[in-house]
């Protein structure tokens, strides 16, 4: 189940953000997942409940936005909804289409508790310590 390793990587990302913003906890994580990403949102949520233990995200809620599958036809220019195993053009049937939505695997936002100002992340303190 690759969802667990994806969650472990996600938690490293959001803990780094939380520390950078001096937050006490992460309360919500919002993701966008497309069906063609190869990640199942239910498995991801399940894996997250395991992976968050003992981290700053221990009590965080995971919200996943599902992205629709849409393609654009290179032949006729039509943009249409598509199915996971049927990605040809809905109008002319051509097989030369570009996926314009549906393979997303993104961290959209994190909600943090407390903090609110960033730690300098490099030697360039004048620029980064925005208060």
């Amino acid at each position: 189940m690759h969802e667990l390793s994806i969650c472990q990587s996600l938690i490293r990302q959001i803990e780094a953000l939380a520390r950078q913003h001096r937050a006490q906890a992460i309360t919500r994580v919002t993701l966008q997942i497309g069906p063609l990403s190869g990640v199942a949102p239910e498995l991801l949520e399940q894996a997250f409940r395991v992976a968050r233990k003992g981290t700053l995200a221990e009590t965080a809620r995971m919200v996943t936005w599902r992205a629709p599958i849409r393609v654009r036809c290179e032949q006729c220019g039509k943009e249409s909804a598509a199915m996971i195993n049927h990605l040809t053009c809905a109008r002319c049937g051509d097989g030369h289409t570009q996926l314009i939505s549906g393979n997303e695997m993104q961290l959209v936002s994190v909600e943090l508790l407390g903090g609110g100002h960033t730690l300098p992340s490099n030697g360039n303190q004048e620029d980064t310590a925005y208060v």
Binding site: L17, R28, M105, Q106, L107, V110, G115, G116, N124
Partner: peptide, 29 residues
């Protein structure tokens, strides 16, 4: 987040605040 755009994210609120990130979940990989 860069020094140039972080003011967009920064909210001087004591309780919860939301950061928009838009990062690939497998950014490390």
């Amino acid at each position: 987040i860069t020094p140039a755009n972080q003011y967009l994210l920064y909210r001087p609120v004591e309780q919860q605040h939301t950061l928009s990130v838009l990062n690939h979940l497998l950014a490390e990989n």
